[in-house]
């Protein structure tokens, strides 16, 4: 049974189409990265998953429950970190988590949750006075309360410093190890790349790609970068390298040669250097960044 299944989901706001015939399946137990620029329809999709927004047409099933008929059952079994959230009245951090635990009917102590999301030091202050990052952590705590089977996290790392973002990724990994499915939306590609098993790319309300990160890289033979450090100046071979099929750019800095090329061309670049009688001292490669992948997909979509 898939953890999340959307089929033919369309959402219109008047003339504006936020989601267009969206089909998507998230497998049970995976960490699924939901990528797209702001305004692509990510939050609309997430709001539909917990029945805060109703689709214009289409079917939505979460953990086997049809969300529109059984929204409370979904909310019992899935934890949500919404994109926009407000603290509950004047409650303190501890009161928030105690409230969430009570709502899920769990007898746990709020203390361990407070520590887990890193706000134990502020637990007795009103959450309204928290910084953006602390509120984000508190809301993650609410999502985690009662160890739900599915975590739906909408931009969980916004408002956090790199350290905080790493802590969130660590929690996501721990939750996945426990057996939870994690659905994680972001417009920051590195955040998703670091933890996700699979990625879906949403653009203008349509899913333009779903694949593993590896698979995506193979599917689109996008330009990566290769930096070769030679024993002497690289000037003499730059023309030969530039002539290789698949090489886009070359740049020379003393004895360092940086080549922008397809993955397939990388070996040919290195052998060209060796054939010219150079010794290769060091090779660094940067895989195609998700940013490049993303750009390739969405550009293709706009051209079509």
């Amino acid at each position: 049974m898939p953890a999340i299944e959307l089929s033919g989901v369309t959402k219109r706001y008047g003339e504006f189409t936020a989601l267009q015939n969206l089909d998507m399946r998230v497998k049970s137990g995976e960490i699924f990265g939901f990528l797209g620029p702001n305004g692509a329809g990510k939050s609309t999709t997430i709001d539909i998953l917990v029945d805060q927004v109703r689709p214009t047409s289409g079917e939505v099933t979460v953990l086997g429950e049809p969300v529109q008929e059984r929204p409370v059952a979904v909310r019992q079994r899935a934890g949500l970190l919404p994109e926009q959230f407000g603290p509950l009245g004047e409650m303190t951090g501890r009161e928030h988590l105690a409230f969430a635990l009570e709502a899920r009917g769990v007898d746990d102590d709020a203390e361990s949750l407070l520590e887990r999301v890193g706000i134990a030091h502020a637990s007795d202050r009103p959450a309204r006075a928290y910084s953006k990052g602390m509120k984000q952590r508190l809301m993650l705590g609410i999502a985690l309360a009662g160890a739900p089977e599915l975590l739906i996290l909408d931009e969980p790392t916004t408002g956090l410093d790199p350290n905080g973002a790493r802590e969130i990724r660590q929690i996501v990994r721990e939750e996945a190890e426990r057996g939870a499915t994690v659905f994680f939306s972001s417009h920051i590609l590195e955040q998703v790349e670091a933890v996700c098993d699979r990625v879906g790319i949403l653009h203008h309300g349509q899913l333009v790609a779903v694949d593993t990160i590896e698979g995506l890289r193979e599917a689109v033979d996008v330009t990566g970068e290769l930096t070769i450090t030679l024993d002497s100046t690289a000037n003499s071979i730059s023309d030969a390298v530039a002539a290789i099929d698949g090489v886009g750019t070359t740049a020379i800095d003393e004895n360092r040669l940086t080549v922008g090329c397809t993955n397939r061309a990388k070996a040919k670049v290195i052998s060209t250097c060796l054939d010219a009688g150079h010794s290769v001292l060091d090779i660094e490669t940067q895989p195609a960044s998700l940013e490049d992948l993303f750009a390739a997909y969405t550009r293709g979509e706009t051209d079509a």
Binding site: V50, A73, P82, E83, F85, G86, L88
Partner: peptide, 17 residues
């Protein structure tokens, strides 16, 4: 008031109708 403060985004992530 709670709707525009996005309090319901949180409450309707918990098992309430």
């Amino acid at each position: 008031g709670r709707r525009v403060n996005h309090e319901y985004s949180v409450l309707l992530g918990l098992p309430f109708s």
